[in-house]
Structures are given as C-alpha cells and as structure tokens.
C-alpha cells in the first residue's frame, strides 16, 4: 500500500490549516516523499516537536503505509 501526495497534503492541512506545504515524490512509488511544511504553529517549538505535529497529522501512517517522508519544517520567517 502507498499514499499519494494529495492525501498527505490534505491530512497535514487538516491539522495545520495555515500551512504552506510542498510535497515531492522522490521515487514515484508512493512510498518515498519529501515534504516542506511552513506554519505559524511551529513558532517556538523544537524541530522534534514540529515534526511530531506533522506525524500526528498523518494519524499513524508515518512508518506504516508511508515508509519514508523526508521532512523539513519551519515557522514562516525562518524559511
């Protein structure tokens, strides 16, 4: 099983409505993506906390149906 980029983006957006999200399918296999997420919700949070917020948005798919998501997160002006 795999996921498509649109599904990943909508899950993240549901949890982070203000987010600017770019998703790249690294291998075209629906299993290896890179995502760059910018959201005000990340301000003042450590990278670990920011990534945990995105993993939470993915509702348990990370490490399961979604094998690899190279993640980069930041609040708006740190981009």
């Amino acid at each position: 099983m795999a996921m498509d980029a649109q599904e990943i983006e909508s899950l993240i957006r549901a949890a982070l409505p203000d987010a600017r999200i770019t998703i790249e399918d690294l291998r075209g296999d629906g299993d290896h993506y890179a995502a760059h997420v910018v959201s005000e919700a990340f301000r003042g949070k450590s990278r670990v906390e920011q990534h945990q917020m995105v993993y939470g948005a993915l509702q348990g798919r990370m490490g399961g149906v979604l094998h690899a998501l190279a993640l980069q997160t930041a609040p708006p002006d740190d981009v």
């Binding site: 990278r47 670990v48 990534h51 190279a70 993640l71 980069q72």
Partner: peptide
C-alpha cells in the same frame, strides 16, 4: 535526550 531521526540529524 532524544535529539531526532535522520531528517533532524542531517539538518543539524
């Protein structure tokens, strides 16, 4: 202390 996974370690 947990520092991170591959993404965060590479970014650091």
């Amino acid at each position: 202390e947990f520092v991170g996974g591959c993404d965060i370690i590479r970014e650091m």
